[in-house]
C-alpha cells in the first residue's frame, strides 16, 4: 500500500512536464472549440451569443454533408487498409537479409522526408494528362494507349489522391513495423524453426501476435492522421467539383477560412472528435479483447 503511493508519486512527477505542456498548448484551444460549437460566432471566430445546437443543425442541413462523410470514410478506411497491408508485407521483406537492403531503406523514407505539400504538388503535376510524367510512363510501359486525364472526374481523381496518400504514409508505417519486428527476440524464431514450423506459420503464430502493440499504434495513428490529412486534397483538387472530392477536414478548412463560418467549423470539429474517439475505443477493445 505504502509502496504503491510512493510509486504513484514518481509517476505523477514523471508525467507532470508532459501534462503541463499538453494542457498549456492544446487543451485550452480544444476546450475553446467545444464551447464555440454551441455559440453563434462572428466572421472571425469570436463569440456572439449562445445558440444551443444551432451550429450542428446547420451542419446537418449542408447539402454536401452526406457526400463528404462518405468520402471521408472511403478515404480513411481505404488508405489505412492499403497502407497497413503494404507496409506490413514490406517490413517483413525488409527484415530479411538481401543485397541492397540498406539502400532500400533509404529510398523508403524519401516520401516522408519531403513535405506533404511538396509531394502533393509534385503528384498533381505527374497526374496531368498532357505534360504529366505518369501518362508518359504508362504509355511507354504499354499499360495505356491514350493519355488519361486522371484529375478530370472524382471517379479517377479520388483514387489517385488515395494512392498519393498511401505512398506518403508507407514510410512511417513500414519503419514502425520494422522497429517492432526487430524487438522480437531471435530465439523465438529459432525455437520455431527447430520445431519445424514453416515460414507462413511462423509469421502467423509468432510475428503477428507479437506485433499486436505496434499494429494497434500504427493503425490508430494512421487513422487519425489520414482522417486529418489536409494538403493532398487541398493541393490536388481542392474538393472540386462541388465538394465531391472534399473530406471532412478540407471542408472544415473551407468553412472556417473561405466561408468564415466558424460555427459550422467548430461543430464539425466536435463531430470529428467523437467519431475518432469512438473508433479508437472500439478498436482498442477489439485488439485487446482478451485482456492486456
Amino acid at each position: 500500500m505504502i509502496r504503491l503511493r510512493k510509486e504513484e508519486k514518481i509517476a505523477y512527477i514523471c508525467i507532470l512536464p508532459s501534462f503541463i505542456l499538453i494542457s498549456a498548448v492544446i487543451f485550452f484551444p480544444v476546450v475553446k472549440t467545444f464551447i464555440n460549437a454551441f455559440y453563434s460566432l462572428d466572421l472571425y471566430g469570436n463569440i456572439q451569443h449562445f445558440s444551443g445546437f444551432d451550429n450542428f443543425k446547420r451542419l446537418f442541413r449542408e447539402d454536401v454533408f452526406l457526400r463528404i462523410t462518405i468520402n471521408t470514410l472511403y478515404w480513411t478506411v481505404g488508405m489505412v487498409f492499403i497502407t497497413v497491408a503494404v507496409s506490413l508485407v514490406l517490413a517483413l521483406a525488409l527484415n530479411h537479409e538481401f543485397i541492397g537492403r540498406k539502400f532500400s531503406r533509404i529510398i523508403l523514407i524519401l516520401p516522408w522526408a519531403a513535405s506533404v505539400m511538396i509531394s502533393a504538388l509534385l503528384w498533381k503535376w505527374l497526374f496531368n494528362s498532357d505534360y504529366g510524367m505518369l501518362n508518359r510512363l504508362l504509355r511507354e510501359l504499354h499499360i495505356i494507349s491514350e493519355n488519361i486525364n486522371w484529375l478530370a472526374t472524382p471517379k479517377t481523381s479520388f483514387p489517385a489522391m488515395i494512392f498519393v496518400g498511401v505512398v506518403i504514409s508507407i514510410p512511417f508505417t513500414t519503419i514502425t513495423f520494422l522497429a517492432g519486428l526487430q524487438s522480437i527476440p531471435n530465439e523465438l524464431y529459432e525455437a520455431a524453426r527447430v520445431d519445424g514450423a514453416n515460414k507462413l506459420k511462423v509469421i502467423y503464430k509468432i510475428t503477428l501476435p507479437l506485433l499486436k502493440n505496434v499494429f494497434f499504434i500504427v493503425t490508430t495513428l494512421n487513422v487519425i492522421y489520414i482522417f486529418n490529412s489536409f494538403p493532398i486534397i487541398w493541393v490536388i483538387t481542392r474538393g472540386n467539383p462541388a465538394s465531391q472530392t472534399d473530406i471532412v477536414i478540407t471542408y472544415l478548412y473551407k468553412k472556417a477560412f473561405l466561408y468564415q463560418d466558424f460555427g459550422i467549423a467548430s461543430a464539425l470539429s466536435i463531430l470529428i472528435f467523437f467519431l475518432l474517439l469512438t473508433f479508437s475505443i472500439l478498436y482498442a477493445k477489439l485488439i485487446y479483447k482478451r485482456g492486456e
Partner: peptide, 26 residues
C-alpha cells in the same frame, strides 16, 4: 507504474491527437 489517473492521462493524450491544428489554430 500503475497509478491512478493513468487511463485518464492516456485518454487526454489521445484526445489531443484528434484535433487537427486546423481546428484550433485561431
Amino acid at each position: 507504474i500503475r497509478f491512478r489517473g493513468r487511463m485518464f492521462f492516456l485518454f487526454l493524450i489521445l484526445v489531443t491527437q484528434m484535433f487537427s491544428p486546423i481546428v484550433v489554430i485561431i
